[in-house]
Write a protein that binds this DNA or RNA. Structure first.
Lengths: 337, 337
DNA sequence: GGTTATAATGCACACGTTAACATTAAATCA
DNA sequence: TGATTTAATGTTAACGTGTGCATTATAACC
């Protein structure tokens, strides 16, 4: 790599000290217009650019953030996009650290920040219950600015931005109710995840609000998987005395599994049974029938998370902030004729 | 953020100079075993970690790479995963820069590297023909280590790792031929993209090798879109005298469009017409019928690209290296009963 | 035992920038 | 006019590491 001109090269060319050049770079008002112009001109001629590493050393800020994500699943892509776009807009860099095995990994992610390679951290989708994992406690103990994407099940509050499951689920269930359904069942996701728990609770609250009876018998758990949902749906359709006329599924994969189960049992979707999912996977659009679903504002979440991180950095001692964003209901073939 | 211990803190604790500590950090053999042990012990006790920014300043290496990608589409996710995993394995950091409008953007991406924030760059899916875009020429001119993911259409060779379209397409066409098809058509992708051009050429070469006649009349262009492929497929099925019994599509979206068109015209897939795609989208698995497709080794591509980048850094003047990786054929319902 | 090779460590500067403090020149005031 | 404020720039010391060279202490040699 070619050697780049430094602040001193610029200074020499103009006939001033490097600190004068530094001042114009940082918009210090003490510099006279005349020398400022000369310096700017010289910088352009040499195509000078400040060395961010050197600046990072003295300022103790690198002007970069890190995103730490335990897995790279399709959901995370729009989130990354939101984060990346926002970083670009604000002039920040973005480092990406992914790992498939977050908890229990002996390498600490605070390392990254400790070395001052980043000014703050975004953490996606880390799930824990009672005990805070070592890696995260480290971040807290060292007061590293940090915002979580998605919530915890644990009791302690953290800065986070996530999908408002209550709002979203109510939209979907209302839609099913509005199209005439009185017996609505649900295929739950895994109860170890925040979304699994929240979406189920939201489902029950929605029924209550809409004055529809909740029936345990038409409820199953598919753990967010296509195949498990398929089995559960078959079980529900076979065994229960009063068959459901609509099913809400905690994600699209399970909704597709439920649809397939219904069809394999000779039922027509949506005529005999309506189905709605959550996520708006690409597959949900192309599935036959296409799946009615909730589209979470993932790009927004990424953007808002960065903005929150900036607020945290500016004022580390401010009270914990939690933001939930609304989703869009996309009505497709699986719920209406 | 808490102040971290420095090399000097360690030195003071042991009673040596900071340069001695630096030497043990860098495995300099000049240090005696006794002091080395003492220093290692002190480092552990203080939980010292080298400041990578400071090191980056003096070494002119940050031990981080950048991935620049014009868009964040689903294909790029496994590539990112491959890159990220490999970086982690090698102890490198990864910066992510995405932009939807690469060419014509006035901000230069060489900036990133010039500031020595990264040691090398991976560029995904930048397409150009005759004139090299400014941004890329800049990288070349300044001898910035750089590897491309996916090839160019331009005449000049670059270091790159990509999908071997010849190999993949031949696999798919052979499969169709092996299941008895003699009239095989194709829905092409956009001819402005490398994959579009290469996959079509590979298709023709495959037919030749398999001694099957190529017929322009059962060839269409869907520009990689579902809807355009749908229309083209209808056109082909309506107009041509000798209807094709199998279609190869340059990607899965178009394959799904082609299937839908065939079914809407009363044909059964695969009984009346077989269809194969490319990409192995998640949707291709859940589509009905599920789509026979080629799964490109995207994670591998990411990993190999990083490895190539390391070779480029080690020896910048070595001859240009081009690697093409093979794909896996996944046979599903759309091509066999 | 003195000379020389060798092993182990210290010293001082460099990397490119920022920023506190010092200095000079110019402008304002009494 | 001389004192004093203000504006503009220079000096210098950080930031945390790495490294060439100098300096010891130790071992080897004759």
């Amino acid at each position: 790599m070619k050697k780049r001109p430094t602040i001193k090269d610029v200074a020499r060319k103009v006939g001033v000290t490097h600190s004068t050049v530094s001042r114009v770079i940082n918009d210090n008002p003490a510099i006279s217009g005349r020398t400022k112009d000369k310096i700017l001109k010289a910088m352009k001629e040499l195509s000078y650019q400040p060395n961010l590493v050197a600046r990072g050393l003295v300022r103790r800020k690198t002007h970069a953030f890190a995103l730490i994500t335990p897995d790279l699943n399709p959901h995370v892509l729009p989130i990354i996009k939101g984060i990346s776009d926002t970083c670009r807009r604000l002039g920040y860099g973005l480092m990406l650290f992914s790992t498939d095995y977050w908890i229990g990994e002996n390498r600490s992610y605070a390392e990254v920040v400790r070395n001052w390679l980043v000014d703050g951290v975004l953490i996606y989708n880390v799930i824990y219950h009672e005990d805070v994992p070592e890696n995260i406690r480290e971040l807290e103990e060292e007061n590293i600015p940090c915002v979580f994407i998605n919530k915890f099940l644990g009791k302690n509050k953290v800065n986070n931005v996530s999908v408002d499951n209550d709002e979203a689920v109510f939209k979907a269930v209302s839609h099913l109710a509005a199209t005439g359904h009185k017996r609505i069942g649900m295929i739950k996701g895994g109860m170890l995840s925040v979304d699994g728990v929240e979406r189920f609770n939201a489902f029950r609250k929605s029924l209550e609000k809409l004055e529809i009876e909740f029936d345990e018998n038409i409820t199953g758990c598919g753990n967010f998987f296509f195949s498990e949902a398929y089995e559960e749906m078959k079980r529900i359709l076979c065994s229960s005395p009063g068959r459901p006329t609509a099913m809400f599924c905690a994600n699209d994969l399970m909704a597709m599994g439920a649809v397939k189960a219904a069809e394999d049992m000779g039922l027509k979707v949506p005529q005999d049974i309506a189905v709605a999912g959550f996520d708006d996977l690409e597959a949900a659009r192309f599935f036959k029938p296409s799946i009615t679903t909730l589209k979470p504002p993932l790009e927004d979440i990424g953007g808002k998370a960065i903005e929150m991180l900036l607020r945290v950095i500016e004022n580390p001692s401010r009270p914990v902030e939690e933001i939930g964003l609304g989703s869009r209901l996309i009505v497709r073939e699986s719920s209406v004729v």
